[in-house]
Structure formats: structure tokens, C-alpha cells
Design a protein around this nucleic acid. Structure first.
Lengths: 141, 141
DNA sequence: TTATATAGTTGTATAATACAATTATATATA
DNA sequence: TATATATAATTGTATTATACAACTATATAA
């Protein structure tokens, strides 16, 4: 059998996804689940955005993002700014509470992964992070 | 930003997880969903095993594996061998059909990932595969 | 003016998971 | 031996994240 590295990547990614799902259930760490964490991170680091733009950024359906942002708003982590040019649209901005929650949550998530990887060399960690980043930004043309 | 690499890894893994969830909800690859693929791979490469052993291997609940293996049996991809020492237990063995389906599915999955990574250097692919493998075998002591 | 496109919400369906209750069998103990 | 407890697996139920489709309200094009 030809052992192309893509075979290894496929198998290991499948294993990773399954195990990660099991360990983290809905991905809630601390007070924020995965979707809340990622949405807050996006809004916080790339500025306010509407539901459609967020859905495109994450390659998810608009309806999914609509529900998840509604949940964020309900918890007071984001607020809506109506678009002055377009009565249908608005953008989501992070609140002070949201900023604080995000910082706390990032720290908790970081500590968890840092502990998991405590026996890895910094080099391997750097490489793994860089490759994951590259993978997430690789798209089929 | 002088971030610790674990921060990057955490963020990118979260992004990856979310996108994978969407892909799974969408549809399977070829004829096998991820659980079927992984279970068949496990049984095929590590020999027959019971529900409990498989659940431990994948760190999933026994009920989850019970349903997934029942689905495999129903499709004729595995069959049960009663444990001669224990009337409650049995082990699952892959059928000829299962072996063929697994091979076809592995090929389809490989091609999909290979296409996705077509603009990556072989070196990066090898490194990424190796690091994913290492990550999956890293456990908190 | 009317038709079409678009931003967002809501209804419904599906898949993967966990936990709890249950069944049948095995093992330990009084 | 009789009874209690443990275990392998199944089944019932709830939760969560997702997609697609139907819908509302507004914007834009013909």
C-alpha cells in the first residue's frame, strides 16, 4: 500500500475529531461553549460583523450563526448595532462583559491545552500550531 | 503577539472541530460515516473486540458504540462471535463485505484529503501527519 | 410599479453523544 | 446453596450543533 502522508492525516484527523468530541462534549470550557468562544474571538479580534459575514467566515449556515449570536446577545456578551444604510442588517459588537468573559475563557482553554502538551517540545508545539493554522486556511479552489 | 503556541493550537483546534462537525452533519464520505469507518478500521487492524473494549479504545460511552456496532451489523459489515466463556459478551469481526467497503472508503477519504492538500509540500504533509499522530497518543498522566 | 434579491429568523429534521434504566449472565459471599 | 452484587450489552430519553426550507422585512433592479 502506498503510504502517502494524506492517509495518515485523514485517519488521525478522524480519530482526533471523535475523541475531542467525546472529551469536550459540547466544547464548553468554563462559561463559554465552543461557538460562543469562537464568535467572541472573531468579533473581538476582527471587529464587529453581521450574521452573514460571520457565517461566511466560519463556513457555517446563516441559521446556525443566527441562533448562536442570539444566545450571545441574550447573555449580554454582545449587542446589536443597526446598519444605518440597511434596515435589514446590523452588526454585532462585543460588550465589556463579553470581553472579560472571553479573556477568562481563553486563559482556561490555554491552560488546559498547555497542560495536555506539557511533555511536548516548544518546537513541536509551534510547528503543530502553524500547521493547524495552515490547514484551517486551506481551501479547495 | 508573543503567544504561547498552545494558545494557537487551542484556537485552531476549536476552529477545526467546528468545521468538521458541519461536514459530518452534512454527509458521509462514500458509504461509511466516521464512526463506521473508525470502528471497521479498528476491528480490521487490531482484531475483533467487544462493545466494551471498543468503547474504551475510543473513549466513548458503551451505549454509543452499541448503537454504532448494531448499525454495522445490520449493514452486514461485521458479525458477532459469542464469547464461549461469557454468555453476556461477544466479539465483533469484520465480514468480507466490510473489508471491501473499508478499503473503498479509505481510498475515497484519502483522495479527498490528498486533493485538499494538493498545494502543500510533501514535507508539511508528513510533519502534520506525524504531529497529529503524536497528539492523538498524548495523554494526561 | 412590480419583480427579484438579500439579511436575518424560525420551523423542522438529523446525527452523535451522554446518562439512566433495563435485561441477562457471571461472580462473590453469607 | 441462596442471595447479593457486578458486568456486558441494549434501549429509552435528553441535549447539542448543525443544515435546509419557509418566512418576514427591507433593498434594489427592471
Amino acid at each position: 500500500m502506498t503510504n502517502h502522508p494524506a492517509e495518515t492525516i485523514e485517519l488521525e484527523l478522524s480519530i482526533l475529531m471523535r475523541r475531542f468530541l467525546a472529551v469536550t462534549a459540547n466544547g464548553r470550557i468554563g462559561s463559554l461553549d465552543r461557538s460562543a468562544y469562537l464568535l467572541l474571538h472573531q468579533i473581538s479580534s476582527h471587529g464587529s460583523a453581521g450574521v452573514k459575514a460571520l457565517a461566511e467566515e466560519f463556513h457555517l449556515d446563516i441559521s446556525t450563526i443566527s441562533r448562536q449570536t442570539a444566545a450571545l446577545e441574550q447573555k449580554g456578551l454582545v449587542y446589536r448595532i443597526p446598519d444605518p444604510q440597511d434596515g435589514r442588517a446590523y452588526s454585532l459588537q462585543i460588550t465589556e462583559t463579553g470581553t472579560k468573559e472571553l479573556a477568562l475563557n481563553k486563559q482556561a482553554r490555554f491552560e488546559r491545552v498547555a497542560d495536555f502538551l506539557k511533555n511536548w517540545s516548544l518546537e513541536d508545539q509551534q510547528q503543530f500550531g502553524a500547521l493547524l493554522h495552515k490547514f484551517n486556511r486551506t481551501f479547495v479552489e
